[in-house]
Design a binder for these strands. Sequence first.
DNA 1: GATGAATGAGGTTTCATTCAT
DNA 2: AATGAATGAAACCTCATTCAT
Lengths: 222, 222, 222, 222
Amino acid sequence: MADSSTSSIVAAPKQERSKQTKEKIVQAAIKLFQERGYEKTTSNEIASEAGVSVGSFYVYFTDKRSLLLTIFDRLADDLYKVVFDGFNAEHLFDSELRPRIKQAIAKAIADKQRRSGLHKVIYELVLKDQEFSARHKEIMERSNSKLRELISLAHAANLTWDADVEAAAFLVQRVVFDLSQDYVTGCCEFDLGRAIEGLTNMIYRFLFKPAAISEAGSGPAK
Amino acid sequence: MADSSTSSIVAAPKQERSKQTKEKIVQAAIKLFQERGYEKTTSNEIASEAGVSVGSFYVYFTDKRSLLLTIFDRLADDLYKVVFDGFNAEHLFDSELRPRIKQAIAKAIADKQRRSGLHKVIYELVLKDQEFSARHKEIMERSNSKLRELISLAHAANLTWDADVEAAAFLVQRVVFDLSQDYVTGCCEFDLGRAIEGLTNMIYRFLFKPAAISEAGSGPAK
Amino acid sequence: MADSSTSSIVAAPKQERSKQTKEKIVQAAIKLFQERGYEKTTSNEIASEAGVSVGSFYVYFTDKRSLLLTIFDRLADDLYKVVFDGFNAEHLFDSELRPRIKQAIAKAIADKQRRSGLHKVIYELVLKDQEFSARHKEIMERSNSKLRELISLAHAANLTWDADVEAAAFLVQRVVFDLSQDYVTGCCEFDLGRAIEGLTNMIYRFLFKPAAISEAGSGPAK
Amino acid sequence: MADSSTSSIVAAPKQERSKQTKEKIVQAAIKLFQERGYEKTTSNEIASEAGVSVGSFYVYFTDKRSLLLTIFDRLADDLYKVVFDGFNAEHLFDSELRPRIKQAIAKAIADKQRRSGLHKVIYELVLKDQEFSARHKEIMERSNSKLRELISLAHAANLTWDADVEAAAFLVQRVVFDLSQDYVTGCCEFDLGRAIEGLTNMIYRFLFKPAAISEAGSGPAK
DNA sequence: GATGAATGAGGTTTCATTCAT
DNA sequence: AATGAATGAAACCTCATTCAT
């Protein structure tokens, strides 16, 4: 997943030096894509920013697109880790469930915002490029199945409302992903703290039966 | 004096022709943008598809971008009408509230899907173009304030949970908008009916206090 | 000479109304050519500034070029009059000859400066357009032959140095024309008063024998 | 250490190629500008004439204008050298002063005529382009200050009439420059030899006091 | 005569990619 | 492996001019 080898395989850098060059290119690209967007960053600029020649660029990447694909994979891996490292099955039966959920949401949004320029650029490609779109689906499916697993457990323990566990997993994932995306695009200026609090409520009430929840303890954090 | 009826026909023959030409261009652009996306559609192709010269294209639009901006406005107006024509303040106290909400969600998603190619293209621009982004904000704000108004009313009638009406309005709007967007991008293949049912539950449980709701009547429609 | 009918003849406006329309176009063109130059002024802009339609523009002028040709003729006529109305054969034997020469030079420069934008534009065309170049030659020849006539008279009266009257006329005319042109182009910032005084000396000393001149009375005007 | 001579050959193989390409473009441009003028020469034609791709054109020059600016600078340098390499301060006190002046004038005109197409094109731009106009001013100022220096020396030696050395330098320079320009534009057909002879007289008589000159030796060279 | 919508050839410029060194 | 000069297809846009009304 962390290798952009879907469309084509270029020389796998065996030497240490090669690895470094490739990394320099990736870092330069990340910087420039964030600043200017995908179309407005030229391969010459990336090479120049990386301190290598355009020729080298094309030794390591078949084209600009495959470079972004590489970056895409890394980003997705990082995000997945950030979110789910702090949220496991055991937390479901924790008395601190609600804060845990809230924290996971907050982390997802924060991590995306850190690299918002990049997420914007990638999403742009997801919208118009078949391969990006497919990769995006895979990534979504990965966290989706993780959520499905967790919600199934909760459902088995009779904590949840719905019979449709799959729909629940799908929606929860989408809702969190999309809201982070909204903050990435810069299209919304609503206070982030209140939005996270609200979203936590939305998800919490959606999933868990009122019997199981003490709303008293889940009031606004303030 | 005897022919006063003809005057209206003669009145604006030039204006009428202009309007038609402009409309031909808009329709051609909608068709091509849907099929090929923004970047891959050239002004020459639009003109040619519309059956006019490139020159005419540039008489009516300063560039491709301004044409898409025009289309964007139309689309936003249409969507707003489709969603909120079927959902007014009076429906809040209706016994049919839940089905109404579900229908509004379904309409929003369906309308977007009808023109999904277009919504994709526009969102692509929202991601990278300042003016599109600003226009997007305005449009979001419009439906947001409508929702705020409705939720305030419900809150005043003690139907809702949250004190933070603004956050609630913001989230509900985002969640619906974003999910429709997900179906537009083609990034998700989850069964639409189950997703709508789930989203209705999510919003319903998020907003309305359990006392006020009879979950019995809100089970899966099937 | 005052009609741009060299390349083609369009309808000669018989009606008063027509004349007015044509004049409006000419005035609008003068204004815009001065402000923006020839290439940067479009026929649509001229028509619009004149308050008529582009169609009308092409009724009165075959093209943009022929319009400028019309303006060219007018300008040349005006300039000729301004310069030579104040300088006749009789002035040659006047005791005030030097001041008369100085005044003629000053007038030539001043008149050109008044319409410098226009002179710039026309000269631009003279440089690249055969017909403008030919017209320019004619105009130059006109004032040249006037000067030849005057210098011949002075020569006959034994006031001048040179045997080569033709060369003298040619040079005097060029020198004055070109210096005014320099002030038109805005390429020189040298104090106009001192330049005129110097040029008067240059021409005076060039033409008239020292015996005939009392340099005492021709010192710097200061 | 044994091969230090080869290093200079290997040193800049890339740079050398670049220089050649740039030079090919410049030469092609000179040829085409002379033949067709500025506007009527397209960047594609220049590249094609130079035997390189349009892309290369834009590697070396930001646009057609900057290319002409480069040519402008070269031309100005060449002209300056041609004129002032043959005329130094020492020549002022030479018995051959008058022939030297005549020769300098002749050289200036001849050099310009050699490249008349180019001078025409450049002057066209001087008329309508701010940057060309500014560059033109600088160039004029350069030869102007050289002349001021020379005339000051002559003035100090009591050879000249005028107290206004600056005006004299300004006028002499203009008069020579402008007359050469007249021959460049092709606007005048007057016999060049007689014109040069006349201009020499004009300048000579303007600058130098009659006491210092023996007009006997300044008759037509023929 | 007047109108102004429509035309379309043709110029400018960009940039991902190649390939000789 | 690395280089970077060179490529050239292809997009954008302008504006003088026409012609149906």
